[in-house]
């Protein structure tokens, strides 16, 4: 599993820019950013280098930031690749809280999934023919 930085954002002008600036000024590279939005607030999810330090930097800048463990899975670049993975989870009655996708160097697609880690998820993923990506493959 990999470390993902999660930041709570009020829907106020400039908060997302301030977040990116804080990470940038600390010299930390960001690899993926996604924002889930509601009417009142958003939750930014970030894959970046040195996640623990990034988290500290954000906390010092006045953000509520924390780390959560998520699965990063390499998805083959062919139609229906992700669908078959999610079907596997469905069949095993495993709830996927959220998912998003980004590409890394070499054009590989990485899916990030938040799943209750108490279940033996990794085995199911590999059993279905997918590869779980290690942290060192994504960030320093």
């Amino acid at each position: 599993m990999i470390d993902q930085i999660v930041v709570f954002l009020e829907n106020k002008k400039g908060r997302l820019a301030a977040l990116c600036r804080a990470i940038g000024d600390a010299g930390i590279s960001m690899h993926a950013l996604t924002v889930a939005d509601t009417a009142n607030y958003g939750v930014a999810r970030i894959i970046a280098d040195t996640p623990a330090r990034a988290c500290e930097v954000l906390g010092a800048a006045g953000f509520r930031a924390s780390l959560t463990k998520v699965f990063a899975i390499e998805v083959p670049d062919k139609a229906g690749g992700l669908a078959s993975l999610l079907e596997t989870f469905d069949a095993a009655d495993i709830n996927v809280e959220y998912a998003y996708c980004f590409t890394v160097e070499g054009g590989k697609a990485i899916d990030v999934l938040r799943i209750d880690s108490s279940l033996n998820v990794e085995k199911i993923i590999t059993g279905a023919g997918f590869r779980v990506v290690r942290p060192e493959e994504l960030y320093r």
Partner: peptide
């Protein structure tokens, strides 16, 4: 404000 221990990663929990 939520307490620092609150897991806000799941929007469902906040809602």
């Amino acid at each position: 404000e939520t307490v620092p221990e609150f897991d806000f990663d799941e929007i469902r929990k906040i809602e």
